[in-house]
Amino acid sequence: MRSSKGILIDTSLCTGCEECIVACKKENGLGKDRPWRGQGTIGELSASRWSTIIRKPGGHYVRNQCRHCLEPACVSACIVGALKKLPEGPVVYDENRCMGCRYCMLACPYGVPRYDWDRNTPLVQKCKLCEPRLAKGRPPACVEACPEKAMIFGGRDELITEAHRRIQANPNRYVPHVWGETEFGGTAVMYVSNISLDFLAWKPDTDDKSFPELSWAALKKVPGIVVGMGTLMAGTYWIIGRRMRLAAMEAEANKHVKELEERGTTNDSANEPEETTDGKNE
């Protein structure tokens, strides 16, 4: 996907000024923070905070937001296709389709989507990579707002090249890994960093397998199960039904034979009734 866009975040440049968050809130009209219960601090992602900065000891600031995976678990989980991956990169949300099952929140490997728990018409809330801005050829608001150029926006391939260039140019400064290059099938929002960012994913040891593959392994068996189970049941019904019919016929026949035998002891010249019963059964 040549045209797929993304963001490269260099956490070693971030000073934690939160200009990006202010810009994001303004761009998307998110308003004041509405932290929900169970949230550790107010600075964590919430329905009104689509991106945030995680402070790590030692003056490290790590931005957290939707990664816009190339093979998004949320999109494959969504029951009605309310979440969509656009070819330009963003994973966007259609509130007119959503029915609020919240399977996407369970599926996301980064635990990003948030919910309007305090409204009676709740929606899923997450970063949309400023999709309307991208359509006009402008970079996302957060990238534009960053005073330290800690984030750069561009084609995903160029960003990967740039990331590796930075790491090679400054091997002492960076951890030699581009987070998001291969994780969960690759993401559009990637990181280079001077500290390990494994804490951002729930479980780093998933062999870079994309989550949709996991459920597809079961889903692709559905037609087989329909045909197999249907045939099996219909066949069983037919076989057992036939066997029972035959058993019934045999019992009937035996009864007649017995009757005939009994009659035969008295009268030898009667063979017709057996034939008529057979005809009836056929």
Partner: peptide, 26 residues
């Protein structure tokens, strides 16, 4: 009770998404 927007409960019948296990269940 559980769905956030229960009046959209009929949506799976219209918007098919065969990659979702939940769609199959529904």
């Amino acid at each position: 009770y559980d769905l956030g927007l229960p009046w959209h409960i009929w949506h799976p019948m219209v918007y098919w998404q065969h990659h979702s296990v939940l769609f199959e269940v529904a």
